[in-house]
Each structure stands twice: as structure tokens, then as C-alpha cells.
Write a protein that binds this DNA or RNA. Structure first.
Lengths: 153, 153
DNA sequence: TATGAAAGTTTTAAATA
DNA sequence: TATTTAAAACTTTCATA
């Protein structure tokens, strides 16, 4: 999966990460090239899997999703079947935006977006009724200082 | 910021969150409408701030950004000036993808994407040299179980 | 890499339900 | 008031130089 990118590729990626609605001409002008080479580079990077997709970003507040929790999970269960069910539950729940398996003391971290604290509790009750969990700590976000999808390229 | 959305709006948002490269015709067909009404609804939702932007999502692994850390921060400092400098440092560092101020015991959580553990240490040393921090716990992700930008609409 | 032409898409306007 | 039709402006895509 190691792809070689040059400076021009990186500039194009920076533009597309910031705003994918720009026309090829506009991007070409900004990166100091022209339409066809930029188009070919974008196609190559899509084929190589560097650019995975293009999507719309919505404002969670505008949709009434005003609460964001980070959830730290410790479990005593490490059976394959338990894990399979747990991962399935996470993947199926749309309020779970991120889920990672961790090294060390804490086993999993989740990022969960919901309408309010009450909706979080509903989510939490549903989750622990589906799979046995040893210990859960919920961290409530008071302020989103930064949230970007831009990777440093 | 409370915007009223109907069923058709929600269907359009779901499509755009999944894939913003689809043509208007395609989206219109999927949601059971036609080009102009869909176009008008999208314009209205952009103006209302529900749709904030359209961007390209890149694959971090393909870019060699193979390590992801969640960083829990406790601080003893709650001076306005300290906080201003801390937030500025976070916003300026491109490896910090997310930063939240939390309620409770832990003051901040960060999500940090870097090449490897060594690059994380470099980031960490730079950060603590910029601002005094009382206690830091880094949680290393072993596996990204789920990572979506799709909000439930 | 550049040019340019064909195909397709978005955007605006006018007509219609 | 919202939808359909239609047409102009712009973009993407691709062949060829």
C-alpha cells in the first residue's frame, strides 16, 4: 500500500481535502499545472486507493446532534464470539462514529454522537444489554476545539 | 441553528454523506424525485449550514500514517492565557485531527495521526515544550473497527 | 504536457400543474 | 407553491498531437 507521491500530488491532495467541489481548472491553476495532468494524477491516486471517496460533511449541531461522548471500555471477555458480537453491534449503530481497539489497559474507545445525554443513556443501555462489558467511562465533550478530516500530506 | 428537514431532505443528505460524486440525476432517481427539486433542496441546506462542505477522504495507511493515538490530558493550569496558547498549538498542528475540551476529571482528549510511535513522541515532546501539562495518557489504536463521517439523519 | 472536441452535468429560466 | 421542461454555461473525460 506504499504509494509514491511527489510534490504536485501532495498539493492536489491538499486541495481536494479542503474542498472537492473545485473544478479541475481551478485546482490546476492553484497547484501550478493544467487540467489534463491534474486529472491523470487524481485518477491514478483514486486507483491506488489514496483517495477513497468524496463526501458531504454535515454540521451535527444543525441536525440537533448536540452531544458528543468519548467512551472508554474495559472488558473481561476476550472470547472470539464475544468480540464478533461486540464489533457487529458497534458497526450497526449509526451513533457510533468511531471505534478503535486499543493496546493496554483500556480495551476500546468509541466516539458517539447523539442528541443529548438522555439519548446517550439509551445507547449505553442498549449496548450493555447486547454484550457483557466490565467497565465503561463516558467522557462528555464540552467544546469541539478542532475536528478535521484533513490528513497531513 | 434548528433547521426543519423533511423525509426527502434526509434521504438526500444520506446520499450525499455516502457519496458526493453522484450526479443530481442519480440522486434524484434514488430518492424518488427529479433534478431541479433536489438541486433546490441541496442549495437550501447549504445556505442553512446543514451541508458545510464537500471533501475528499484519503486513506491514512496509503499515505504512510500508520499510527493513531487518543491522548487524554489533565492540566493544573486553567488561566485564560495558558488555554489560549494550548488551543492555538492544537489548531496549528496538522497531526491533531480532533481536540475536545471535556467535562470532568480529564480536561482534554485529542486524536492524533502520525507515521509511527517515534513520530508521536516527537509530537508529544513539542507539545509539552510549548505548554505546561500536568498529566498525559496516550492510548494507541491497534485496530480501527469503525470510522465514519456519516451522521445519522 | 497541451489542445480541443464529445459527452455529461449543473445551473438558471420559463412554462405548467 | 412546487415540479417539469428546456436550454445555456460549464466540467469532465478522453483521443490525438
Amino acid at each position: 500500500m506504499a504509494v509514491r507521491l511527489d510534490d504536485m500530488d501532495r498539493k492536489i491532495l491538499a486541495e481536494l481535502q479542503a474542498d472537492a467541489e473545485q473544478s479541475l481548472d481551478e485546482i490546476a491553476r492553484k497547484v501550478g499545472s493544467s487540467k489534463t495532468p491534474v486529472w491523470n494524477r487524481i485518477r491514478r491516486m483514486k486507483e491506488a486507493g489514496v483517495i477513497t471517496r468524496q463526501i458531504a460533511i454535515l454540521d451535527p449541531e444543525a441536525l440537533g446532534l448536540e452531544a458528543c461522548f468519548f467512551v472508554l471500555i474495559r472488558t473481561s471477555e476476550h472470547e472470539a464470539d464475544w468480540q464478533r458480537r461486540f464489533l457487529k453491534a458497534l458497526r450497526e449503530r449509526p451513533e457510533v462514529l468511531e471505534a478503535h481497539r486499543l493496546a493496554g489497559d483500556i480495551d476500546y474507545i468509541l466516539k458517539v454522537r447523539v442528541k443529548n445525554a438522555r439519548a446517550y443513556d439509551t445507547f449505553y443501555q442498549a449496548l450493555i444489554s447486547e454484550v457483557r462489558i466490565y467497565n465503561v467511562t463516558a467522557l462528555l465533550s464540552m467544546e469541539e476545539i478542532k475536528a478535521t478530516t484533513m490528513l497531513p500530506v
